[in-house]
Computed example of a mutant assay.
Amino acid sequence: MIKKGNAQPDPDIPTGELSTSMNIKNMQPATVQNLERISAAMRIARSAMARTIMDVTMQDPLRLFCISSSLCDALDQEVARAAGATLKQDWFDADWPRTTNAAWCSILGLESEDDMNEVLLRAAPALSLRARQTLQYAVWIPRGIAMTFALFVETSLRGIDTLMRAYREILSPAGIGLATVLRDASEIRQALLAPPLMLNGPAGALGKYCRCDIFSPPDYQHGAWRAIVTLDALKTRNVRNAATRQFELPVLERRLITPDGPYGLAVPDGEGWKMGFCFREGRAELHLYSNGIAEGENPVTLQEVAETLCAGVDSIFSGHDGDAHP
């Protein structure tokens, strides 16, 4: 039971603002004891500690939206059904802490419930896809999960600059790798018929059947790069020839190219085998290094690497034009 008093000035609140007194009854003894213990440790009054906890909880716009929005509640249930998981019943179970919610609002410029509602509506068609990307083994999922997914979808749609900021400030500290972020964002953009994700790296090439982007992730050292080769889905979707399932890595002077783990594949090399690469869900991710020489002195430019990778993929697919769309 809560009794509310009249608004009155509070010495702990900035001048010009009003506070409201509340008497809270029927609290569980264990809760009161914990509150007293924490208050003593922090050397502040019990009432001040309780007020701080309530203020912090009730001044998180994103969490309050997730609690109060009927649309978010309905989409939470849709996500739970898509994932085959159970939605938690406690309203205070949220997927992100308050500081992370504040970071999302800053990155996406969310200033009102209308802004949050628009983000949720735009992302609704991709929520089931996001559930497949992240909730494969989930048993319980928190309330507000639809908004959590919507924030990532919106970030993906806004482009690489917004996506990289979210990666640096939120996703990377949460243990989510850059390769996963880029893969998931690209899948979402493709599902929503948005243009391919432009990585804004120092080099890129467009072939007949693919494109290659080379960039340096924030945690990479100088001279180390990541190359992402993406197939043109329209031109390659009907190709079923086994020859298009394995690709050789180009051999270039002073360049070392290796596949990222899941994209590595042994390919024939005379009577033996050598490391090549393959595509998974229309993309291949490779590591690229300047080998034994400073990047600025390397005789093979990053642009030449991108063009060589595209040419190698195109040469394989061009032999099966009858199986691919023109």
Results as ranks from 00 to 15, higher is better:
Lys3Gln: 15
Lys4Ser: 14
Gly5Met: 11
Asn6Phe: 13
Asp10Arg: 01
Ile13Gly: 10
Leu18Gln: 13
Met22Leu: 15
Asn26Val: 04
Gln28Glu: 14
Pro29His: 01
Ala30Ile: 13
Arg37Ser: 15
Arg43Tyr: 12
Ile44Asp: 12
Ser47His: 12
Met49Ala: 15
Arg51Leu: 10
Arg51Pro: 05
Leu62Ala: 03
Phe65Thr: 07
Ser68Met: 02
Ala74Leu: 06
Asp76Val: 04
Ala82Arg: 05
Ala83His: 01
Ala83Ser: 12
Gln89Leu: 14
Trp91Met: 14
Phe92Asp: 12
Asp93Val: 10
Pro97Tyr: 01
Ala103Leu: 08
Cys105Tyr: 08
Leu110Gln: 02
Asp115Leu: 01
Val119Ser: 09
Leu121Pro: 06
Leu121Val: 07
Ala123Asn: 00
Ala124Val: 02
Arg130Thr: 06
Ala131Asn: 04
Ala131Trp: 04
Arg132Thr: 06
Ala138Met: 08
Met147Trp: 04
Ala150Cys: 03
Ala150Val: 02
Phe152Met: 13
Val153Ile: 14
Thr155Met: 11
Ser156Phe: 05
Ser156Thr: 13
Leu157Pro: 08
Ile160Glu: 09
Thr162Leu: 03
Thr162Lys: 08
Leu163Gln: 09
Arg165Cys: 05
Ala166Leu: 03
Ile170Ala: 02
Leu171Ala: 05
Pro173Asp: 07
Ala174Thr: 01
Gly175Val: 11
Gly175Thr: 11
Thr180Val: 06
Val181Leu: 14
Val181Lys: 12
Leu182Asp: 07
Arg183Asp: 10
Ser186Asn: 07
Glu187Ile: 00
Ile188Val: 15
Leu193Glu: 14
Pro195Gln: 04
Met198Phe: 07
Leu199Ser: 00
Asn200Asp: 13
Ala203Tyr: 00
Gly207Arg: 09
Lys208Met: 13
Cys212Thr: 11
Cys212Asn: 09
Ile214Pro: 08
Pro218Glu: 01
Tyr220Gly: 05
Ala227Cys: 13
Ile228Phe: 00
Val229Gln: 02
Thr230Ile: 06
Leu231Asn: 04
Leu234Tyr: 12
Leu234Phe: 13
Lys235Val: 09
Thr236Leu: 02
Arg237Met: 14
Asn238Lys: 15
Val239Trp: 05
Asn241Glu: 05
Thr244Glu: 09
Glu248Lys: 12
Leu249Ile: 09
Ile257Glu: 08
Thr258Phe: 00
Thr258Glu: 05
Gly261Thr: 13
Tyr263Ile: 04
Gly264Ser: 00
Pro268Cys: 03
Gly272Asn: 01
Met275Tyr: 02
Gly282Glu: 05
Gly282Phe: 03
Glu285Cys: 07
Ser290Tyr: 09
Ala294Pro: 06
Thr301Gly: 01
Glu304Ser: 05
Val305Asp: 00
Ala306Asn: 08
Glu307Arg: 06
Leu309Thr: 02
Val313Thr: 03
Ser315Asn: 13
Ile316Met: 11
Phe317Gly: 05
Phe317Asp: 01
Gly319Asp: 09
Gly319Cys: 11
Asp321Trp: 00
Gly322Val: 03
